[in-house]
Simulated assay, not measured.
Amino acid sequence: MTTAVREAPHHRNLTCYTDYSCRRPECVERYTNWDRDRIARHAEGTWNNLVDAEPVRQHLLALEAADVLPNRIAKAAGIPLQTVRDFTSPRTRGRRYRTSPATAEKILAVTAADATPLYVDPTGTHRRLQALVAAGWPLIHIDRRLGYKRERMRKILAEKVVLGSTEKLVAATYEELRSLKPERHGVPKLYVQQAKQRAAARRWAPPSYWDQYPDGIDDPDFEPMYGVTRRQIVAQDANELMRYCGLDRYGAAERLGVHKSYLDHAFREFPEYALETAA
């Protein structure tokens, strides 16, 4: 069975071109400019001109000691979250001991004031709470661990913005609880099961899913595909191809490696993705 081609979650860096075969004109131009710069720097002998990463690591540790979250540092510096983590507490790769001058400059320029806004986008906070529920932690028990009154976490899940201090608190609690078994820490098994069922019904992704997309958890443009069926993925991707690439149903189905009848079925099952102009 041919796997459906996924559309890039966003079009702001090189990954949509390199990892998702995106060929939008602006994305092709971004990659072309990067490649041209790479070739020029190779010719100058400066492409692999790396520097000691220890000053960067010490700067990051100082920011973390000031309660600045890694995701806020990454956003302020304009670099991927995993890049920040690699300097201090990497999970999947070894600690970074060398880095590019550009990356070092971006991180060293970040101050605690730059990375600690009063109000922040709630995406990361919502997803971390949802992930904990998916791991079996009821919201009421998260309330208790954070010292909040009952229903506070439920209200936060409905907020359009959250306080920066709330984001910090939830992120710290997420790191504390994400690998723990709730039933071993005072949560009755019945409540654990109910929390998991509630999360499954809402397709809330667990921590193990977000481990695969460390930059996605805080990115409002990243669309988590956890619990989504292949037919829904095909319907979504076909919708994107037809809207942005001008393909009809036959062309979209061929690009996705499925028969047109499969795409028709997908559109019937998920009519919100079907286009009126589809052939």
Rank of each mutant, 00 (worst) to 15 (best):
V68R: 06
T15W: 12
T32G: 08
R72F: 11
C16V: 00
L177Q: 05
L256D: 07
L146C: 14
A8L: 00
Q130P: 04
E54V: 09
D121I: 15
G136A: 11
R91W: 12
N48P: 04
D86I: 07
L256R: 05
G216Q: 06
R85W: 00
F267K: 05
R150D: 03
A40D: 08
D211L: 06
S21E: 08
L177I: 15
V120C: 06
T116K: 13
K155C: 06
D86H: 04
Y226H: 15
A135G: 14
L69Y: 04
R57H: 08
A238W: 01
W34E: 14
L241V: 01
A201E: 15
L163R: 09
L61N: 05
L81E: 03
N48R: 14
D19A: 14
E269H: 03
D143C: 00
H126Y: 01
Q212S: 14
R152C: 04
M225H: 12
R178S: 06
D215H: 09
D219Y: 03
R95L: 14
T123D: 01
A109V: 01
G45D: 08
E276H: 03
A115Y: 13
E105K: 15
A102F: 12
G136V: 07
S208Q: 07
G246V: 14
R249W: 01
A266E: 08
L275R: 10
D86V: 15
D237E: 11
R152M: 12
P182W: 03
A102S: 13
R41F: 00
W204L: 06
A53C: 03
D35K: 04
D237P: 00
G246F: 08
L263S: 09
Y273P: 02
K181L: 14
A266T: 05
R24C: 06
R24D: 01
N48E: 15
H141P: 12
I217F: 08
A238Y: 02
P9K: 11
W210C: 13
T15H: 10
L241Y: 02
H10L: 02
Q193G: 12
A65T: 05
P182V: 00
D221C: 11
G78F: 15
H185P: 05
G216P: 12
F222M: 06
H11K: 07
A172N: 13
R95I: 15
H141Y: 12
E276Y: 05
A172H: 11
R203M: 07
W137N: 07
A195W: 04
T123Q: 02
A274T: 02
H59K: 10
A253F: 08
R98L: 14
T103S: 13
D215S: 12
T111V: 06
L177F: 10
V192W: 03
H126W: 06
L69W: 00
L81A: 09
K196S: 11
R198A: 12
I233F: 06
E269V: 14
A172S: 12
A104G: 10
A235P: 09
A74L: 01
V5A: 10
P188N: 10
S100L: 02
V234T: 03
A266H: 09
S208A: 12
I39Q: 09
W47C: 02
R154G: 06
V68I: 13
A235F: 07
